[in-house]
């Protein structure tokens, strides 16, 4: 039987993996994929809480997840557009080489 703990452990693992990818990848699109993983781990947690926790309106958790998915899509659209703009000017989207602005 799957309990809340299972969902939360998977959520925490996904979040950690996503954070690791976001911090370690040098390609901007790779970083973005890590961030998407973090957002989806939050969705998993929200749905798990909505399913298992005593709440007057458990549907709130699922509604929250729907909004997170929508916002993540908008954010990804802007991120990819920016990545294209950066690539056109610099011929790279390696975040380590985007170093005009530092200190």
């Amino acid at each position: 039987m799957i309990s809340l703990e299972h969902v939360l452990v998977v959520g925490a693992l996904l979040f950690s993996i996503g954070l690791f990818i976001a911090l370690s990848r040098r390609n901007a699109v790779g970083v973005l994929m890590g961030i998407e993983l973090m957002l989806n781990s939050v969705n998993l947690n929200l749905i798990g809480f909505a399913r298992f926790v005593e709440a007057p309106r458990p549907i709130d958790g699922q509604v929250f997840a729907v909004f997170v998915i929508t916002v993540a899509a908008a954010e990804a659209a802007v991120a990819l557009a920016l990545a294209v703009a950066v690539y056109r000017l610099r011929q790279t989207i390696d975040v380590d080489r985007l170093n005009l602005l530092k200190w």
Binding site: A22, A28, V31, L32, I35, E75, V78, A79, L82, A83, A85, V86, L89, R90, I93, V95, L98, L100, L101
Partner: peptide, 10 residues
């Protein structure tokens, strides 16, 4: 400007 934008976003 684009570098600032993508850093800010990520």
């Amino acid at each position: 400007s684009t570098e600032a934008g993508i850093k800010y976003l990520l």
